[in-house]
Design a protein around this nucleic acid. Structure first.
Lengths: 150, 150
DNA sequence: TTTTGTGCAAAAGTTTTGCAGATAT
DNA sequence: ATATCTGCAAAACTTTTGCACAAAA
């Protein structure tokens, strides 16, 4: 029998139900959208994609679902280069992001490396950095090269 | 004669004019507002404050003026905890920010310390961090203590 | 059956834009 | 004189909210 080794949405569904939530087609659709998105998406873009996938999808449901999923710890958001909220599925480990403000590409920094960077902030200022929310803007190597050459 | 040792808005005015811009009452008002603001302000709040100071001020002018001032390098913006754009006058030295997501207070990190943190990002990833844009969210010492105690 | 979620429609809030007239230089 | 800026008004866009109905448990 052709059966997937792991059901990718199973854990999400279980977790929603475990908190007394209902697992609806709309929620499943949004979770699938998010899981099929490698990087970050703004809520507005999720609205568009949801409507593209299913024209009956509505903005209010998308926004409310994002809130619900975030409260359940299934997704998180950070802030993109334009200041908009950007969602992504909750990763196994905390990680920060590098965002190139020229080309817009993003990279992830693993928790270990990120802690290396932010660790002394805790020591000096007693400030506990929220890694999931940390996105660092700047210019990536490629864009710097182009700018230097051009 | 009572004369200020330094004219705080003079440099701004000169810089605007040097780039072929005009120094208008509206621009001066906004620059004064920004210079009287220690921390960060969202554009929307600047609109409000401008109207409070002068009821004839209009949103479009505020937004366009902010754009113009930023292009001239007189102000910069970063992104607050809620993802909105926050403006502040261009500081003498680049600095990053710590933002407590619980109480909302902010602290500045001087360039030297910030470079210490981000320096190795350049080395490892060839990524040139834009310090002015860097705001680090987390929980400050006070809020952490309260949360621990409560 | 009861609680929770959805869809619709309308509103709120922020930011952008076109254009005619005013203003700085 | 002329290029730039302002004010107005309207629109675009994102996000929120109230409410009646639908659906999950």
């Amino acid at each position: 029998m052709a059966r997937l080794a792991v059901d990718p949405i199973g854990p999400a569904r279980d977790r929603v139900r475990a908190q007394g939530g209902r697992w609806t087609p709309q929620r499943q659709a949004l979770v699938e959208l998010l899981m099929g998105t490698p990087g970050h998406v703004t809520s507005a873009e999720l609205v568009d994609r949801a409507r593209a996938a299913d024209p009956t999808a509505t903005p209010s449901t998308v926004y409310r679902t994002l809130d619900a999923l975030e409260e359940l710890g299934l997704v998180r958001h950070s802030h993109g280069a334009d200041g908009r909220e950007e969602y992504h599925v909750m990763p196994a480990s905390a990680h920060a992001h590098l965002v190139c403000s020229t080309c817009g590409r993003t990279w992830e920094i693993e928790e270990g490396e990120a802690r290396e960077l932010t660790g002394r902030l805790s020591m000096r200022h007693g400030f506990a950095v929220d890694l999931e929310h940390l996105s660092i803007e700047g210019r990536c190597a490629d864009c710097a090269r182009e700018a230097g050459a051009g």
